[in-house]
Amino acid sequence: MKDEIKMPDEDVLIDLAELFKIFGDSTRVKILFGLHDGEKSVGEVASLLGMTDSAISHQLKILKDSKLVRGRRDGKQIYYSLDDDHVLSILNQGIEHVCE
Results as ranks from 00 to 15, higher is better:
80 Y>H: 06
56 I>M: 01
45 V>Y: 00
79 Y>A: 07
78 I>A: 00
69 V>H: 02
57 S>C: 04
73 R>T: 01
59 Q>L: 05
50 G>W: 10
75 G>A: 11
65 D>H: 07
77 Q>E: 12
55 A>L: 13
68 L>P: 08
56 I>K: 02
66 S>T: 00
66 S>F: 02
90 I>H: 13
48 L>C: 01
87 V>G: 08
39 E>Q: 12
38 G>D: 03
72 R>M: 07
58 H>I: 10
47 S>W: 03
51 M>T: 05
56 I>L: 04
55 A>K: 14
57 S>R: 10
51 M>N: 09
47 S>G: 12
43 G>Q: 04
86 H>D: 12
64 K>S: 09
85 D>C: 03
42 V>Q: 00
60 L>M: 13
79 Y>W: 14
78 I>L: 01
81 S>N: 10
75 G>I: 08
85 D>H: 08
41 S>E: 08
81 S>E: 10
52 T>N: 07
92 N>C: 07
96 E>H: 14
85 D>V: 13
63 L>V: 14
80 Y>W: 12
39 E>Y: 03
67 K>W: 05
49 L>C: 11
63 L>F: 05
94 G>I: 09
91 L>Q: 07
90 I>A: 10
62 I>W: 04
63 L>H: 02
67 K>Q: 12
41 S>H: 05
44 E>M: 04
58 H>T: 13
68 L>V: 01
52 T>G: 10
77 Q>C: 06
87 V>R: 03
45 V>Q: 01
50 G>Q: 10
91 L>V: 15
93 Q>I: 13
48 L>A: 11
91 L>W: 06
49 L>K: 04
48 L>H: 08
90 I>N: 07
43 G>K: 03
91 L>P: 09
81 S>K: 03
84 D>V: 08
68 L>D: 05
94 G>T: 11
79 Y>T: 03
39 E>H: 06
80 Y>F: 15
85 D>W: 12
85 D>G: 13
66 S>R: 05
43 G>C: 02
52 T>R: 04
57 S>W: 10
81 S>V: 08
70 R>M: 11
80 Y>I: 07
55 A>E: 11
76 K>V: 13
77 Q>G: 03
46 A>Y: 01
84 D>R: 11
59 Q>G: 02
52 T>Q: 10
41 S>M: 08
67 K>C: 08
45 V>I: 15
93 Q>C: 06
41 S>R: 04
40 K>E: 01
75 G>T: 06
44 E>I: 04
87 V>I: 15
95 I>C: 09
59 Q>W: 07
71 G>H: 00
70 R>A: 08
82 L>A: 00
81 S>R: 10
83 D>K: 06
51 M>Y: 12
43 G>I: 00
76 K>Y: 09
80 Y>Q: 07
67 K>R: 14
88 L>W: 06
39 E>N: 06
89 S>Y: 13
65 D>K: 09
50 G>H: 03
54 S>V: 09
